[in-house]
């Protein structure tokens, strides 16, 4: 255990370790926001929505244009960066996934990949493939707490993510719509017999998931101020890994998985090397799949023979 050895050594390295935990939590809350969309969509229609990472990219661009071109305040920009992706998510579901609800799952998966490619390539066409600097809204001056630096953007990202996740949790656990969502993910047919409009609930699920991804897009712009059309590919894959890690279909699982992913990445970057970071993320995935395929918080299902 490399981290533990470091603590024993010197204060400086111990500080570095805690510093990486702070960075990891900020990064992890972004992963968690994206992972939520994957997990909700998978939970309800068993689809790995490959276009989800690109929705996150669009969120970042909506935020970017709202802040720079239209000079809107941060709160309004964030709201727009959630609203527009939400509408787009619903549109994608309606046009590309709904007609295939009874088709083999691999056909829907390929369609999702097609949608992902389409968004990426349209974005490169419209926004140009070059990276753009995301406007600096919050002062970069870090807050020093006994040697640990916490930057203001990191704090903002963390707090926003927590508020959004609490809101989602409230919606899913306490409201009638949330109950309907849980019912549909358990058994679509039974839910429909109970008078739940399945299509509306699935639409809503896409809207919610996409809104969270859009917010994550703005968050990432706040911490790592560079955005470009392909920025969604890797974080998308990793957020999906995070969702599987936590137990796909489970909302607390996605949050936990996102945090674990963020922490692992930032610790590996600091302690081993940033080039190995991606390999570690996927190794973690394979280990979890082999030990407990349903993820940390997932429920196992037994096939009836």
């Amino acid at each position: 255990m490399a981290p533990l050895c470091l603590i024993k050594k010197e204060g400086v390295e111990m500080g570095l370790f805690i510093q990486q935990i702070v960075n990891g939590i900020a990064l992890g809350s972004i992963y968690a926001l994206i992972a939520l969309g994957y997990t909700m969509v998978y939970g309800i229609i068993r689809l790995i929505n490959f276009a989800h990472g690109d929705i996150y990219m669009l969120g970042a661009f909506v935020g970017y244009f709202a802040l720079t071109t239209y000079k809107l305040p941060f709160g309004v920009s964030l709201a727009l960066a959630m609203l527009i992706p939400a509408l787009l998510g619903m549109l994608i579901e309606r046009v590309a996934y709904r007609p295939l609800r009874k088709a083999p799952s691999i056909a829907v998966l390929i369609t999702a990949i097609g949608v992902s490619l389409l968004i990426e390539n349209l974005a490169m066409l419209w926004f140009s493939p070059d990276p753009r600097p995301f406007p600096q809204i919050f002062p970069l001056r870090p807050l020093e707490l006994s040697g640990i630096r916490v930057s203001i953007p990191q704090v903002i990202v963390f707090i926003t993510a927590v508020i959004l996740m609490m809101a989602l949790n409230f919606l899913v656990q306490k409201t009638k719509v949330g109950k309907a969502m849980r019912a549909v993910s358990q058994d679509k047919e039974a839910a429909s017999l109970m008078g739940i409009d399945i299509n509306r609930i699935i639409s809503l699920t896409f809207a919610l998931g996409s809104a969270l991804a859009g917010a994550a897009g703005v968050m990432v712009g706040v911490i790592y101020p560079r955005i470009q059309p392909l920025m969604g590919v890797m974080p998308g894959l990793k957020a999906f890994v995070a969702a599987v890690l936590g137990g796909i279909g489970s909302i607390p699982g996605a949050m936990l998985g996102g945090l674990i992913m963020g922490l692992t990445e930032s610790l590996v970057t600091a302690l081993i090397s940033s080039t190995w970071r991606d390999a570690i993320a996927f190794s973690l995935l394979i280990v979890i799949l082999l030990v407990k395929p349903t993820g940390i918080l997932g429920k196992s299902m037994r096939e009836k023979v």
Binding site: R46, L109, V241, D278, F282, I286, L289, L290, P293
Partner: peptide, 15 residues
């Protein structure tokens, strides 16, 4: 099975 295998093989390719 199914999607889980897909993700594991995806991870393998990336590794």
């Amino acid at each position: 099975k199914g999607d889980y295998l897909a993700i594991a093989t995806l991870g393998m390719g990336e590794i």
